[in-house]
Design a protein around this nucleic acid. Structure first.
Lengths: 155, 155
DNA sequence: ATACGAGATAGGATTAAGTCGCAAACAGGA
DNA sequence: TCCTGTTTGCGACTTAATCCTATCTCGTAT
C-alpha cells in the first residue's frame, strides 16, 4: 500500500495549511477523521466514519464526527455525495435532462442538451454495470446568489 | 399554460396503465400527488408536495405523500434527486472523477475519464451560474447486483 | 347495480438521523 | 509556561421519515 505515503502526505500538509488559514485547530480527532475519509474508498456515511475512527480514538463522539466532516467539506478538503444537507427532492420531468446545482442556496436548475444526452462513455464503465440513466451534474454558484452575495456597496 | 393539456394528459394515461399493471389502485390522493409533482418545476421535497396537495385534498396525510412519492418513483413515473433513501456520504478523492450509482444496492463506484473531465457545456448553462465542478452520474444496475438478482437455478 | 376483498388512508406513535448547549479540556501563540 | 479562544463529549433535543392499525375505498366479480 504505497498510496499511504506520497498522496496522503501531501493531503495532510494541505490540511494543516488550510486549517491554519481558517484559524481552526488541528486536534487528534480532526486528524483521524480526515485520515479515515482519505483512506476509505467506499464513500462512507458519517456513522461509518464514526465507527472506524472509534477504533483509533475510542472516546470520539458522533457529534464530533459530524461537525468535522462538514467542516472539512466546507473548507473544500473533502466532498459530499448527493445534495448536501438537503432532503430528498422529486422531479416529474422524465425527459433526459441535466442539473445545475447551486452550492450556495441548493437550488436545482434543469437544462437540456442533445449533445450531453448522447455522451460517449469510457470503456471501463461497462465493467461496473449496465447504465440506465446518464446525467451531467454541474455544481457552482447560481446567478442569483452571485448577485446577492458579492455586489459591494449594497446590502 | 398549454403544457397542462397534451403532456399532462399523456402522463396521466401512462399513470393509469402503469398502476393497473402493478395491481395498484388509483386513489384521488395518489392522483393529486402525481399531478402536483408534474406541475412543479422546482424539484419539491415531500413536505412541500404535502402542503400543496393539502390545498386540494385537505385531509391527506404526510405519510400518504411519502408512500406515494416512493411508489411513483419505484414504478418509474417520477424521479428522485440525489441518492434516494440514503444518508449523506463523504468522499476524500478530490481528483476529478465520475460516479456509477447502482439503483439496486446504492453502491457508488468511481471512474475516471479525461474525456468526460473536459466536457463541452451548452451555452445556456452560463446563464444559470458559474460552473465549479462538473460530474457525470450514471445510474444503473451494477455487475454484482445483476449476478445475484437474475441467475436462475441458483440461490 | 351491489357486494366483497385486497389494498389504501389518516394520524398518532415511533424510530433514527442529525443538531444544540454547555461545562470541561485542549491547542497553540505569546 | 500561561492564557484565550476553540473544540470536545455527552445528554437533551429537533426533525425527517417510517410504522402501526382501525377504518375506509377502489375496482373486480357477481
Amino acid at each position: 500500500m504505497k498510496s499511504d505515503s506520497r498522496d496522503t502526505q501531501l493531503r495532510l500538509c494541505r490540511l494543516e495549511e488550510t486549517l491554519r488559514r481558517a484559524g481552526v485547530k488541528l486536534t487528534p480527532q480532526r486528524l483521524e477523521i480526515f485520515r479515515e475519509v482519505l483512506r476509505a474508498s467506499d464513500h462512507p456515511d458519517a456513522e461509518t466514519v464514526y465507527h472506524r475512527v472509534r477504533q483509533r480514538v475510542p472516546t470520539v463522539s458522533l457529534d464530533t464526527v459530524y461537525r468535522n466532516l462538514w467542516l472539512l467539506h466546507d473548507l473544500g478538503l473533502i466532498l459530499a455525495l448527493g445534495s448536501p444537507r438537503e432532503r430528498v427532492r422529486f422531479d416529474g420531468d422524465l425527459r433526459p435532462h441535466h442539473h445545475f446545482i447551486c452550492t450556495s442556496c441548493g437550488a436545482v436548475y434543469d437544462f437540456y442538451s442533445a449533445e450531453l444526452d448522447r455522451l460517449h462513455l469510457p470503456a471501463d464503465v461497462s465493467a461496473l454495470g449496465s447504465p440506465d440513466r446518464v446525467q451531467v451534474e454541474i455544481r457552482g454558484l447560481c446567478t442569483r446568489c452571485a448577485q446577492t452575495d458579492v455586489e459591494p456597496g449594497r446590502q
